[in-house]
Design a binder for these strands. Structure first.
Lengths: 176, 176
DNA sequence: GGACAATGCTTGACATCTCAAGTATCTCGC
DNA sequence: GCGAGATACTTGAGATGTCAAGCATTGTCC
């Protein structure tokens, strides 16, 4: 029945009605909540669209999207990186798509550990249909914002994204 | 190995290098991508923090957060609504928390179909510790943005959110 | 008061997801 | 060449998530 995912309502108690705390505290938390809410709403709609119009799922679509733009195929590990999920996950999704004939695993003659995953002709055909619809959904979903607002949002998120990426190197300290 | 979730890289083929298409097409798609990326990055960090610091998960934390602000307890269905997930899901998460003694199901004397879920004393204690940490993480993660920028982002997302909520009534046509 | 729909929750089947452990294969140094 | 370590993928356990079907209880209408 619910239409979207977790809201992470973690506004930390104690400040129900009469907020004595510095309001700046709340700001970040509420911003996070709103960000999450928007993303989930949109993701949920895209998911539903893919389900009802094409009887497929978002990770399947995502995997095919990666392959579409890599005519020479991708290794499982490359798919894993680009989809930002673990390798084991890619194995499962690829299994499913292969069973449906939308994708093939070809062994790499140069390195027999590697599978080169490619879209089949059928897979490509199906993806193209899905991609067109998908794009129109997304355009509609962002119809609330003017081009100028879109640019603003893009810039703000860009700054946030870059900052988050920066945190990676500092706290995680990637070893050579 | 990957640190964040799906990127939904669905920029629809055909426009690899020389984009002939109206650029406004791309804008919404890229905006969506960036929104998703930011949300996933943050969500992923919060998740990792909860895991490593408290050996718990985000949906468990979310459920406890809902209960924290409802001293009289919540029905399963209310939890389902507020967490924006299905009822079956709430059953599972509640089972886990109950097994750990952080939460109890009490039967409602007025309506024997209903469970009233409450935090135990231990649950409340644990949640308070987690909430404090959680808030500081979120504040840090949004440290990239000035108060002014936060407000801008808040407003833009607000507009988007409201628009998305509006789409609900139109396309889904809720029956009386 | 008795059928019958609506409500609240649980269950089971399935798709994602993560992580850690396992199996192949490759590469490098000796 | 041969063995140690790195790399590529799969597997299995466990948590989340959806959906549809099932059970118990409630409420309503005649």
């Amino acid at each position: 029945m619910p239409r979207e995912k977790s809201a992470l309502l973690a506004v930390p108690a104690a400040l129900d009605a009469e907020t004595r705390v510095h309001d700046d505290h709340h700001v970040s938390l509420r911003l996070w909540l709103r960000l999450l809410s928007c993303t989930n709403q949109i993701e949920c709609r895209v998911r539903q669209g893919l389900q009802s119009s094409f009887d497929t799922t978002l990770p399947r679509f995502d995997l095919m999207a990666q392959l579409e733009r890599a005519p020479r195929g991708l290794k499982m590990s490359e798919l894993s990186q680009r989809m930002m999920v673990t390798g084991g996950n890619v194995t499962g999704i690829t299994d499913g798509l292969e069973k449906e004939g939308l994708v093939v695993r070809e062994v790499d003659s140069a390195d027999r550990r590697v599978y080169r995953v490619k879209l089949t002709a059928e897979g490509e055909r199906q993806f193209r249909r899905m991609a067109a619809e998908h794009e129109s959904w997304v355009i509609d979903l962002f119809g609330a914002l003017s081009p100028k607002q879109k640019k603003q949002l893009m810039d703000l998120l860009g700054e946030l994204k870059e900052y988050l990426a920066g945190l990676n190197g500092v706290s995680a300290g990637e070893k050579p």
